[in-house]
Design a protein around this nucleic acid. Sequence first.
DNA 1: TAAGCGTGGGG
DNA 2: TCCCCAAGCTT
Length: 356
Amino acid sequence: MRDLAHSADALSRDLLDWYDVHARAMPWRVAPADRAQGVIPDPYRIWLSEVMLQQTTVAAVKDYFERFTRRWPTVTDLAAAQDADVMGEWAGLGYYARARNLLKCARVISTERDGRFPDSYEELIGLPGIGPYTAAAVAAIAFDRPETVLDGNVERVMARLHDEHAPLPGVKPILKAHAAALTPQHRPGDYAQAVMDLGATICTPKSPACGICPWRAPCRARTEGTAADLPRKTPKKPKPTRHGIVYIARSECGDWLLERRPDKGLLGGMLGWPGTDWEAAPSEAAPFDADWTPAPAEVRHTFTHFHLILQIRTATLPAGFVTEANQELLRRHDFRPSDLPTVMRKAYDLVRDTLC
DNA sequence: TAAGCGTGGGG
DNA sequence: TCCCCAAGCTT
């Protein structure tokens, strides 16, 4: 790989100068001015925010972060929480394995490390839910270690800065090397956040604002006019459409019949309505015999790798109904629709007025 | 290693 | 409407 015309020191300095002025305020972030005054970030809040931010936008995370930290102010508080409460608070944020691993990790930190987070990449990586990105991010942001973060933003910024045309994910090691070469020993925590802010606000996927970029001078893709086309990616597979049926039942006194989904797989560990598997063609699988009423509308929902069309049936639960091991009968005041993953809440929203 | 794993917003 | 994408991890 060729070196840039500008030194790594000059680049990191220019970016930190830009960050000092343009750093976005976030609930978990210590502003650069406060950091300069000696304010230290709370590793628990940095870790929690980074896990929430995996494949998730800042806008989507903010409210969840506020609710989590209000309810569980420390990692020890979180470790002591009920599984169902944590899954319920995570509902709607997606990628639910994150919530299960979050709780596992909190319990390891709480019981095996006296509630204190490790401060190095090597000790962080491999904790439940902490991979290469999150380990580097926590080490850099919470502990100001000179680790290199490589997320989608940094990949894009590096691909453009060096005009790398080879497609992701194959080119990732090259981009990581480019990023590592720029990581400074001075203020590495602020620098890590600065590169990501740059990618999120200036070096955006479409129509990047090259004219106001602190790296406009050294950027090769800007010179070549290729910025908007980078990084290249290998084409994605088309999403198939699957079908299913959910069965929403209430007892005479208003209790709701729900199921706790198995930990592994789609929506693992989350609450949901009893229903069929989701496959190419639906087949009935009612949780009990009844005169099930088809709902007039159906749920359309898209997951990471397939589209789903979900029919809904409703019925009244027979008196004396006995729940299976994975089922729960939730009293009207104990049932919070916000505890449901979005696809299940959509089904609820379509029938709630006819059942309440 | 490539596939599985959510959701909401923007162009 | 549809596709892309977002501070990735696990198996």
